[in-house]
């Protein structure tokens, strides 16, 4: 990655200064704080329910990882796998469609002049400030009227809307797509949509990855919307599923081990994707604050 400022830090690095030791000590304390729960999760996923309570929390005791695994994937007819699939569908399709729609809208707002443009943009930006939880409840009441609650659609379609995505797409299109290129396309007789598809879309692709990431995580993280919309367990995303198990230890004590392991498995792909795509976060965040 090309983010670290290339020369400056090297030049004035004086090893083992007092301030440096203090700073490093602080960094390690903070790193412990951020890593400890994750470490506990990894260790605990290898324990059965009895060892979870009986053993020292920070070390392995009675290796039960494989029985936890088979239990997790077979409990209640293998519903955990269904939850994982649902989550991938909600977040994957939701974020892909949201990215496409945001790219179109951001491009339209950036590259054309028309009446009411700034008003529309202001309303969309107002949408960034409207919290998702405030919308979920009225959305539920609304969808209940048309009998659409407790369906895939009730969780999927609201995720197509990303005001923040439109904002990023507009800023990026404005900065990265030269008007001359669009003009050249027009002179060659390309339609407006073809210009978008063949020129703009490609130039905007780094911003589109950022939008996809933001929306993907937003959907993956959204708890309130599926909680109010869904009553059929088979439609749950994994967060809601694990939450429902978290409330059933009374009836089924083995569930605590499944929740621990299930939490670990559900975050592994996300954490990897996320850390390896970190530079896209940064580019999006920079775009967001530059325009501030």
């Amino acid at each position: 990655m090309s983010i670290a400022p290339p020369i400056a830090p090297e030049r004035q690095r004086a090893p083992f200064r007092k301030s440096s030791i203090l700073a490093m000590a602080f960094m390690f304390v903070m790193a412990t704080y951020f890593l400890l729960p994750a470490y506990w999760l990894v260790i605990s996923s290898t324990k059965g329910p009895t060892q979870l309570y009986a053993s020292q929390g920070l070390w392995i005791s009675g290796f039960k990882l494989f029985s936890n695994l088979s239990g997790l994937f077979s409990y209640n007819g293998g519903i955990y796998l269904q939850w994982i699939i649902n989550t991938v569908l909600y977040a994957g399709i939701g974020a892909a469609v949201a990215t496409l729609i945001s790219a179109l809208a951001g491009y339209g707002l950036s590259k054309y002049n028309f009446k009411g443009k700034e008003l529309i943009f202001s309303i969309i930006l107002g949408g960034v400030l409207v919290p998702g939880t405030a919308l979920a409840l009225p959305l539920y009441l609304l969808l209940a009227k048309v009998h659409l609650t407790n369906t895939y659609w009730s969780v999927l379609i609201p995720a197509f809307v990303s005001p923040f995505g439109v904002f990023l797409a507009r800023v990026y299109a404005g900065a990265a797509i030269p008007n001359e290129l669009i003009e050249a396309g027009r002179i060659d007789g390309a339609s407006e949509f073809k210009i978008f598809r063949t020129i703009a879309f490609r130039i905007m692709s780094p911003a589109l990855v950022t939008i996809f990431l933001f929306q993907f995580v937003a959907i993956w993280n959204n708890f309130f919307l599926p909680l109010v919309m869904l009553s059929n367990q088979k439609l749950y995303p994994v967060t809601l599923g694990l939450y429902s198990w978290d409330n059933q230890y009374g009836q089924a004590p083995q569930l605590i081990s499944y929740v621990v392991l299930g939490s670990l498995i559900s975050v592994i792909p996300l954490v990897i994707a996320f850390l390896s795509l970190q530079r896209f976060w940064r580019s999006g965040l920079t775009a967001g604050s530059v325009k501030l």
């Binding site: 951020f34 994750a38 993956w220 993280n221 708890f223 967060t239 939490s263 559900s266 975050v267 954490v271």
Partner: peptide
């Protein structure tokens, strides 16, 4: 940055 990759509920 790692904790941000973990959903709030989890």
């Amino acid at each position: 940055f790692l904790p941000y990759g973990i959903p709030g509920v989890i």
